[in-house]
Computed example of a mutant assay.
Amino acid sequence: MPFVVPRSPELPAATWTSYAMTTAAVVPLIWRRRAPVTVLCANVVLGGVYRVAFEGPGQPLPYAGLIAFYTVALMCAPRVRAAVGLGTAAAVALSVGWETGTARELLFTLFVSGAAYALGRLQYTRQAYTEAVEARAAELERANRIEAEQAAARERARIAREMHDILSHAVSIMVVQAEAGPVAVRRAPERAEAAFDAIAETGRDAMGQLRAMLGVLRTDAGAPRAPQPGIAALPELLDRVRAGGLRVAYERTGAVREVSAGLGTTVYRVVQEALTNVVRHAGAASARVALAYGPDELTVTVTDDGRGPGGAPGGGHGLIGIRERAAAHAGTAWSGPGPDGRGYAVRVTLVTSPLGVGT
């Protein structure tokens, strides 16, 4: 402004040297975020040199020092801020005493410096809050991604379990019927036709269940979605098994009642897998399926008169799937020798009370 608006004759003339020195006090601000205390000290020293060595156009603008002090409040540790604050207060007192020595000038300079410090701390709080919000958002995103991955893993396990139960049962029945077909053709032709009909029926049923199960994976809204089989479908399942030559008895005890669709599907799959193991491994002539309804639970028991534990491996995917299905309904699963040590038994207890997961 002294180069644009004429100054009063009693004031010192404006010189390029004095303004170059004022500009030099601003240059250190380039490094203020790397070394805020050093930059503040450099600014104070350059201001002091200006006042002592130059007869410039009045006091230089204090903005560079205020910005440096603001940066100290923003970036430095509490002990450093306290030391710098005391030093700044002392420097302000000396500067005011050198210039005017009035209380008004001292209070005004301290107020402006305090305002710069307060703005620095306010900006620090704002940045910390923003970082906390961003970190929280990133944490939620990670948690959502992990939850989605876990849900996808659970869904893959469920689909694998369903496909194992459906295909294992259907293929086992079809193999038994196919092996019996040639013998029936030679000895009892009228039974051969029934065996082939059973193979076709089992295949159609398996395809229908697979189509219904895989239909939920399709994205188009018009995909047909048939309900999963439940307890009501057990007689059809047992008829298909009987068609393969295995005698199967079925009984229900207790207060028979409706259960949830999910629990009914679990009962169906447990019986299906247990009978599949009987057909494939036990070498049994007969089996028995029993449903016992209790006040808060439903117990499913499948026994046979086959070879016993030696004929049915305990670590296969089928029995693992049975245990997983039971756990999904807050239940338990057990497998081992049948009554009196004969044959093999699978017993699953599922919770049906309101506290149960499957209700």
Rank of each mutant, 00 (worst) to 15 (best):
S335Q: 12
D165L: 14
R204A: 09
I320W: 04
V271G: 02
A68D: 12
A223R: 02
R156G: 01
V72E: 15
P182W: 12
A115T: 15
Y250S: 01
N144T: 11
R7S: 12
A135T: 15
A312E: 01
G356I: 06
V271F: 06
T38A: 14
V248W: 08
P28K: 03
T301E: 05
P6C: 00
G58F: 08
R121C: 11
G85P: 03
N277S: 09
V96H: 11
L350M: 02
I146W: 14
V26L: 06
V271E: 02
W98T: 10
P227Y: 08
W98E: 10
R136V: 02
G314A: 11
G114A: 15
L319R: 09
L263T: 13
I67P: 00
H164T: 12
Q59Y: 08
V92T: 14
L291P: 07
V37G: 00
P224E: 06
D340S: 10
P78Y: 13
V348I: 07
T266S: 09
A118P: 04
I67K: 09
V171F: 12
E201Q: 01
E324N: 09
R247K: 09
L66N: 12
G87F: 15
M75D: 13
V72Y: 14
I320T: 12
V5E: 13
L350N: 03
V259L: 14
S18N: 01
I166C: 07
Q123T: 14
Q123F: 10
G358L: 01
E131M: 13
R7C: 04
F108T: 08
A116S: 13
Y268G: 03
R154W: 12
G48D: 07
M174L: 04
E155H: 14
G203L: 02
P12S: 11
M21D: 00
R142D: 09
A198E: 10
A330G: 05
P339A: 03
A330Q: 08
A194H: 03
G358N: 02
A178N: 04
A128Q: 15
T88S: 15
L263C: 04
A118G: 11
A143V: 10
T301F: 02
G254E: 03
E179R: 14
R156F: 10
G311M: 07
V84A: 15
D239Q: 09
V248Y: 06
L238W: 02
G85F: 12
S286N: 02
E147I: 02
G56L: 10
R191A: 10
S335V: 11
I322A: 01
F111Q: 07
I146N: 14
V183K: 09
A198D: 10
Y344D: 03
A333Y: 05
P9E: 07
E139V: 03
G203F: 03
Y268N: 06
E324A: 12
S353Y: 00
P224D: 02
R186M: 00
G114S: 14
P60D: 08
G58M: 08
